[in-house]
Design a protein around this nucleic acid. Structure first.
Lengths: 248, 248
DNA sequence: CGCAGTATTGAAATTTCTCAAGCCGAGTGG
DNA sequence: CCACTCGGCTTGAGAAATTTCAATACTGCG
């Protein structure tokens, strides 16, 4: 039986999810078993497609199986501010379990595969198993720490440092989720999207990137980010990874 | 017995805490009883005193009884970026329950009274009572929504809108916690501190405030903020309170 | 009264934005 | 196979927002 379920997409999701949660709290075999009773629904989205919209009241939580998702606010004028980006292994909207109406939207930054986890099942599991509850909770807390850094990045750093910091963060997170290849990882964002995340105009993003590129700190071509000089880039960005709580 | 306990400072804290949690999840009498077994330690802090520092591993969580606290990051150069401000009824660092090492500091913005809730006791209660756990969790989620708005505020809005938005938020939150008086509330921040929160220089804060003041939108004197024209101020700031999840 | 911290002002220096145009590469239809 | 188009990247240059520096007022408090 085990052999067969391992092959199903659901089992793959369970495995990925377990790996993630286990980094936040050590789960017992019983916990793992409980989680593997979750019935995820797998879906594909194409670049720029919205998965959940500001104002929605979803009854499932999103787990990223492949690709990259982005969370964003839509401003009155229609402008967009990206809040964070999420890669395989992330759970970008568990807050929807308790914050019933979405305060932001979630979209695919490129082709992405996600798994939808029914709220009801999650709540039920967490009611019975505090440890699982704590693991999910901690995940949202780690998320909040990333938001806090974003505040500091936007509020206190000039363009170059801002981009440098962002690149460092993205790389470390990719490595944590084991979807990086050494010092490079996918980053399927246009310069415009990057600007909408960093509070910069496209033009500034472009010029700032040239600066980082010419100095040989980083390379960013064809949706792929490669850090060539970690020390220098981290120094420029004032990057200290201790806020990226991953392992317990 | 009830009569006596009501008079103790601990009982006052329990009451305030219950009120807060009840807005996030409806607690049963048994839940309330469990919470009232918490043994808070009340402390006073003077303006600018740190309560917890970046890197600390606290074993208690802070509950604000009186006054205002601020969370902030310290940058390499010593600069400070305020992340959020907290008033009576808030729990500014429950994340420390699971994020063992503080990624930011917490200080008193003016004279403040806080209650320290032992992590151990909290965890124990939450293990037994999922609803309480969910209530605390939701509180941290509502917090994260505020961080997200801060990102948008810093990333997408010019100085005037940024300040306007901040003033609106602060007022609504004070009203939610029932520490506002109509459209005015305490805001014990200097223009410099305001700048360190809004990613602006003191000079810009000063000029921007004069603008808002001269237009008769808001008044801010002697640590007290009064909104004179809510409609206009909210319009300038692009403020929509739906992200301030308070009641369930 | 006088200090210390905070608020206010002026003016030049900087950063970032906006506008506007040109370029480049990938995919498409003829 | 090539011209064409579209989205994204790059560049130049003037405009705008914000910062910095440097003084000058306030204001509450010892």
């Amino acid at each position: 039986m085990a052999r067969r379920t391992v092959e199903t997409p659901a089992a793959k999701v369970h495995e990925q999810l377990l790996a993630k949660l286990n980094r936040h709290r050590t789960l017992s075999p019983a916990d793992s078993a409980a989680l593997s009773r979750l019935e995820p629904r797998v879906q594909n989205f194409s670049r720029k497609a919205d998965i959940v919209r500001q104002g929605d009241n979803p009854d499932t939580a999103v787990f990223v199986v492949e690709g990259m998702l982005g969370r964003y606010h839509t401003l009155a004028g229609g402008d967009r501010q990206y809040l964070s980006f999420h890669i395989a292994g992330d759970l970008p909207d568990i807050q929807s379990l308790f914050l019933t109406s979405m305060d932001h939207s979630l979209c695919a930054m490129d082709r992405a595969k996600i798994a939808l986890l029914p709220h009801e099942q999650l709540i039920e599991i967490m009611r019975r198993r505090p440890t699982i509850c704590f693991a999910f909770w901690r995940l949202t807390l780690a998320d909040a720490a990333i938001f806090r850094q974003a505040i500091t990045n936007l509020g206190s750093r000039p363009a170059v440092a801002r981009l440098a910091h962002f690149f460092c963060e993205q790389t470390v997170r990719a490595r944590q989720n084991e979807v990086a290849d050494g010092m490079s990882c996918d980053l399927p964002l246009s310069q415009e999207e990057l600007g909408q995340a960093m509070g910069l105009s496209v033009v500034s993003v472009n010029r700032t990137m040239q600066l980082l590129r010419r100095q040989g700190f980083v390379e960013f071509r064809g949706q792929r980010l490669t850090i060539k000089n970690w020390g220098k880039l981290a120094a420029v960005g004032g990057f200290d990874p201790s806020y990226l709580y991953d392992a317990e």
